[in-house]
Write a protein that binds this DNA or RNA. Sequence first.
DNA 1: TGAACGAAGGTGACCTTGTCACAGACAAGG
DNA 2: CCTTGTCTGTGACAAGGTCACCTTCGTTCA
Lengths: 220, 220
Amino acid sequence: MTDWIADTPSLSALSPASKTRLGALQPMALPRGAVIFRPGDDVTGFPVILSGRVEVFLTGAGGRELLLYAVEPGQTCVQTTLGLLGGDASYSAEALCATDSRAILIPRPVFLTLMDSDPAFRQLVFTAFAERMGGMIQLMERVSFQSVECRLAAFLCNRAENGRVQATQSEIAAQIGTAREVVSRRLDAFARRGWVRTERGAVEIIDAPALRRLALAEGL
Amino acid sequence: MTDWIADTPSLSALSPASKTRLGALQPMALPRGAVIFRPGDDVTGFPVILSGRVEVFLTGAGGRELLLYAVEPGQTCVQTTLGLLGGDASYSAEALCATDSRAILIPRPVFLTLMDSDPAFRQLVFTAFAERMGGMIQLMERVSFQSVECRLAAFLCNRAENGRVQATQSEIAAQIGTAREVVSRRLDAFARRGWVRTERGAVEIIDAPALRRLALAEGL
DNA sequence: TGAACGAAGGTGACCTTGTCACAGACAAGG
DNA sequence: CCTTGTCTGTGACAAGGTCACCTTCGTTCA
């Protein structure tokens, strides 16, 4: 087993005592698609992602989904912090592994001890919290004030690798908080303008600058 | 001048040293309508509301507004915590006094000292943070998955005093994150069903149970 | 091998929301 | 009075969400 503490930059500032305490924990392997938690689950501990990517979704009545945020290596999950520190200790969102991942789960008592004893750990949790909150406010702004077209363009720009985005239209819809049908129609509109080409399970980007211009047109 | 620390329950658990430190600060009087901060302002300190009510809005391109959360006595502002602890130190939202209010502003250095030295203060800031985050997620859920009709009904139920809601339709629109015209039409629909009666600057509630049923119809 | 099934994507119809433009109603002060 | 600014109502239209249903692919498995 690798020394996961040394391999995780965000943990490097922790005190030696904290590292010792955490050293006893075993990383878990989580396959792509694994459910970390669902709405209503109890909070049993504080997960830290070591590798991979976990996505946290809100699910609405009609089955529509909205990506709240993604957790990447070294980051922590706010939903959990919320449960461990605040009032109600259950989740209101759903977390799924977007890729194969490894994570540790810090049990609640250990978490509380670290919070009280290690300023570096506090700092870690706090800045994670602050960043998430900022992200949530930006998300709020995008979802309620920006057009779907604009959000879609921004998404395509961000997720593109070698001019391609590997994702089904349903997935894209969940990421930007709209319905699949709308994504289908918007992508079609982009395609007719010659900006993209759609395939089953992927979108090929032809005119990235045009998309970027559109993404920036409506404010941030 | 009254002893504002003793009068604020949420501060009672602080250590004597913290109280001494805070005792030197002078409460500020803020009239209704006063602007606490605007987008782009720098974060100079950590405000704690002693009395009154402060509302924090997000403002979109077309001038549309959305109430993110309200700060009530003993509570603190997350936007600020975010600025003091996280990366970027400027606000992305706007805070207005909804009523005449009193507040203290804890200067940044004092805030940071208290965070490191007083577990009770930490607890205070942290739970405030956790509660806000929970509230933001609920807001997200309402704004992106619930109909305007439902949100409006819920708002009327919550804000009613003696069967009346004192607010202009513009204010209501900002509170539930929609456009004024839409509020006008929805209220009209409620009125035709005999549930409310509208006046200039107020809404009288006639059939509260009907509204409550509608508010609960689409999940929380 | 080919029938069947399920996931992904396309489309039309329809309703709800948001936007724009503008008009009437009302309150407070000159 | 008359004016001015705020509050409210309305029609027309565009954008987005929902529903129903169909087509097109891959995969599986009998």
